[in-house]
Design a binder for these strands. Sequence first.
RNA 1: GGUCUCGUAGUAUAACGGUUAGUACAUCGGGUUUUCAUCCCGACAACGCGGGUUCGACUCCCGCCGAGAUCACCA
Length: 479
Amino acid sequence: MEIITRFAPSPTGYIHIGNVRSAIYPYLLARQSGGKLILRIEDTDRARYVEGATELIEDTLEWLGINWDEGPIVGGPNGPYFQSERKEIYHEWARKLIKAGRAYADPTPPEKIDEYRKECNEKKIPFLYRNYRPTKTPEWEPGIPLRFKAEPKSYAWHDEVMGDMHTGPEVLDDIILIKKDGYPTYNFAHIVDDAEMGVTHLMRGVEYLSSTPNYLALYEALKLERPKIISLPHILAPQGNKKLGKRDGAKSVTEYREDGILPEAMLNYLACLGWNDGTEQEIYTKDELIKNFSLDRIQNSGARYDETKLLWLNGQWIRKIFTEQGVHALYERTLNFWPESAKKSSEDYRIQVLSIIYDRLKTLSDLKEMTEYFFTDPKIDLDFLIGNKFVKKLSESELESLLKTTIAKLTDLKEWDADSLQDALNDLLKETAKKPAELFSLIRIAISYAPFSPALNLTMEVLGREVTLARLNRTASAI
RNA sequence: GGUCUCGUAGUAUAACGGUUAGUACAUCGGGUUUUCAUCCCGACAACGCGGGUUCGACUCCCGCCGAGAUCACCA
């Protein structure tokens, strides 16, 4: 049997890390089995609809490398893929239900319903609308909400993540199928759509677990086969025990793109939050995730979102891309992250810088802070010298003569490459009888005035003879 | 309140009847001729509690405690 999964967001804003996993897992499952992923936009709530949200969702999925087989943009045989354009389909199914005596138009005004609810709350008994069913119901027509006529009974089902489930009749109620405005509720629409689109595996957040019996009743009344049900635990906010949401400052997935997170790292991190394959592997490519993913190893408790680990993974991925695909491949990813001053320099030079700095990057945006001095002469700040625990022991005249000796040595250097530079530096250590910590710190500060930088010889090689000597001279005369 | 779910180090997780309870991130030490990072080595640190069942329980059962979800003409 072909596996067909779906991701069905409502276009009310961006996708954040708390809910993107319900796109990732269906994607992995579909791809691993050679099945299909459907993207469906659930836009039946016109009040909450946000212009441009659909594009935001598509953009996020594309960035993560999650492509869909049916849905907006790509189309498909079961369209339209926007619920707002499927009104007639829902009405058709609704009429079947009415005909079978399983749905009724409900003329009760909302205020009356609130009263019923209050009454129950006061008596501390559960509020069930089916106990207040109107005795006389009109013919259904647009403008009147349509309710399901529930039959109180027990249900048992299997949830691929949560295990065997069962509930009593007390959870079944007359849920609204079609709203006053003629649009279906989620409760009704998703069932119709999943059936029409042939969805076999239904993955969604655990928040739907408690309404599942009502959906089961609906499948039954509609004479539909129910799909496999998979409830995904929540991702928890870093603080407290709440599910991660926009109110906790959950950033949009694509915001991480601007922050210099690689999509590979993001996908890797999110997929492994609440799922593991039982091995001790930490770094997974998309293909490895597809290959190893399995429903039965999805965690059944919530997982806390931890940005530290994401950052670590991102660093790993930066290095992985560098070693496996080369500097150029990594460079392609960095285009938007260089400091302003880098624009003057050649691409070739930027690539040289990247190849010596890449293993210090946690995010691509670190480039801005970390490479400035490669492109523009740093401001001389003698506090760097005073603040260094080795350099500060040396007197001013000593500093000056050390710099002079270094300048002389480097001026005479035949070849300006990493090896020759290292040899020269080693000679200087001998000649001046200084410790590496003293001499190298001094030189490093003089040419970069940065809190950290790559190995000295590599930094000088990339900067070039002219710039290196000029910077050493500048410091020598500033002391 | 009803119904349902979950509970291994700070975090993510492994082990699912017999292990010194494993791994990774974080933290703290140490190493790799300067710094920061990488890399390597080491340390700290966990089975929510209480009863059973069993020769033996993190693992099975019961109770408690704690946490979460849901009870909308939102999805």
